[in-house]
Design a protein around this nucleic acid. Sequence first.
DNA 1: AAATTAGTTGCACGCGCGTGCATTCATATG
DNA 2: CATATGAATGCACGCGCGTGCAACTAATTT
Lengths: 337, 337
Amino acid sequence: MAEQSLETVTADDVAILAGVSRWTVARAFKKDGVISDKARAKVMAAATELGYVPDLLAASLASDRSNLVALLVDDFDNPHKLVMLERLTRILREAGYGTLLVNMLGESDGPEALLTASQRRVDAAVVIGTQFDEGIRRTALGAKRVKQLIIFARASTAPGTISISCDDVAAMTEITRHLLEKGFKRPLFLAGPDTESTRLMRKDTFINVWSEEGSDPPPSVIHVPEYSMALACEAVTTRLSDLPSQVRPDVIVCENDVLALGAIDALRHRLGLSVPADVAVTGFDDVPLAASPAYDLTTYRQPVTEMARALVRVLDNGGRDATDVFLSGRFIQRGSS
Amino acid sequence: MAEQSLETVTADDVAILAGVSRWTVARAFKKDGVISDKARAKVMAAATELGYVPDLLAASLASDRSNLVALLVDDFDNPHKLVMLERLTRILREAGYGTLLVNMLGESDGPEALLTASQRRVDAAVVIGTQFDEGIRRTALGAKRVKQLIIFARASTAPGTISISCDDVAAMTEITRHLLEKGFKRPLFLAGPDTESTRLMRKDTFINVWSEEGSDPPPSVIHVPEYSMALACEAVTTRLSDLPSQVRPDVIVCENDVLALGAIDALRHRLGLSVPADVAVTGFDDVPLAASPAYDLTTYRQPVTEMARALVRVLDNGGRDATDVFLSGRFIQRGSS
DNA sequence: AAATTAGTTGCACGCGCGTGCATTCATATG
DNA sequence: CATATGAATGCACGCGCGTGCAACTAATTT
């Protein structure tokens, strides 16, 4: 592989060296391109010698696909985002897609962020595990260059979108039954923001299953305005302090791991209680920290890999006849319950 | 703003509606374009009506800038990566750059990942806080489409690259002096992989400062093969178990927070020791978890925002006369030391 | 052996916009 | 009022590749 000049190498250069036309070069680089083995070999040899790599930018301009996906993220405080980003970037890259990471800065930045992405002709915009904003949907439908709007790790029935998520109902049912079996009596559900759009079914499922299959009083619920460990810690501290142990919850069921970790911190470090002896805790997501000896959190692992694969299928289909996807994960019992 | 057909709106459409030429439209969208206020107003009105947004893809093809930056990440286990991603995506986006997130899958995937990025004509490839691979550098210099290779959050003297990082020497000096003042006697330094390339100066600095300004025996050091809480936990457990308290380290100085959190877990949950009473711990990075009551970790906050801004400056300069950047962060004393 | 067919290859045109220069217009000067 | 000056605007050409069809070659059929 000879060192080339700093001129960019185009398909034309390869074509000349290989003694074929430029279009034959393009075919050689298409997986299912119709081309003879001989020609492909010649092209590949020439390409290697020149260090040629197809320019995806020019390809995107010429065709109506960019093989680029925008990942829209608005909450970088949740370590589970990192898990999803790892999985998505890996699996999308393996499938030939590039990933544009877009930070949805503030509250109402969704539409703006989406426009940013659309300027690069992304094949799809994927909103990752976030409260779904109606403004985003309208912008997406308005902007012609956003071909698909996909909600990842969040169920959504918004028209014009496809959601790929964990089956929250099945998952939370499993958690609830586990707690009922263990004999807990006074659960407290710790939830995130109480919004209308794209809600998680976790809270409702817990309440339903507990009420139907469980005993006595209906579960009580507290909401925190953000999925933050600090806020969860504070909320739990406030709620439980000065509460006589007879009426104190014996288990805190959390909408996700971040809340659960905050709850555990509150119990141990603010209230001087022990987990799970005094109060048990369960989470949702299975963030890496949940497995650490410090927290040892019972949780439910979202099937992130399978969800990413499902996303690839939707993308490969170009959005034709795509339907919402629900996948089951795995209940992970650890020491916190 | 009337609903348009699904045809893509181009600058031509806007030009016709505004009664100007296509190039005037382009000028209106350039911040410093020479254009009369009147024309710009007309263009903007027409653009708004049609819902026109410039196509950055076509712009990239036509010019030699894409305003796209590749972020190469290989270790998604460190929560500090999430902090850096948040800051980088935000600040780069504010400065008009898009960010392509590329997962460097395995060991020797660097060059391949870089090629992937180069196919999209990125203005720069930014390697984020990772062991710097020589293969990446050679590929970058070989691939003409990668105009700049930037090492972020890691010092590097590799030729042809620019590094933007925290001033590790100043930072670790500050940590060390703090520990000396506090009167610690038997430090243990917990480090990550012991490689040659792009190393952190933290370990060497600690050893130097401690040896010069401190007393008695030189600090001992252990390396773990990866920056992982679990491995750190294991390593510390192995090292300290069955060690009589007279010779036990009184402080564990860690190369970063991930190691420090693992060390704390080991001390508390494996060895039954208390932090900081029995053994103190310090970290580096100031990941969000370091502030939680569970860990309350003394650490050093990297100036991530300033580093991101420095990156923007380098990018805006197109790499001309750019030199390595070192920035100071802030020592954060908490309860673990 | 001529005609048919499948397998390959070549090519005109366009994707949407930037660059650099030529041209036109508005304003200031003598 | 004519000219000089700078500000605004218009335009030919190209960026690198994909699409869809036409042309060509080799293998198959009757």
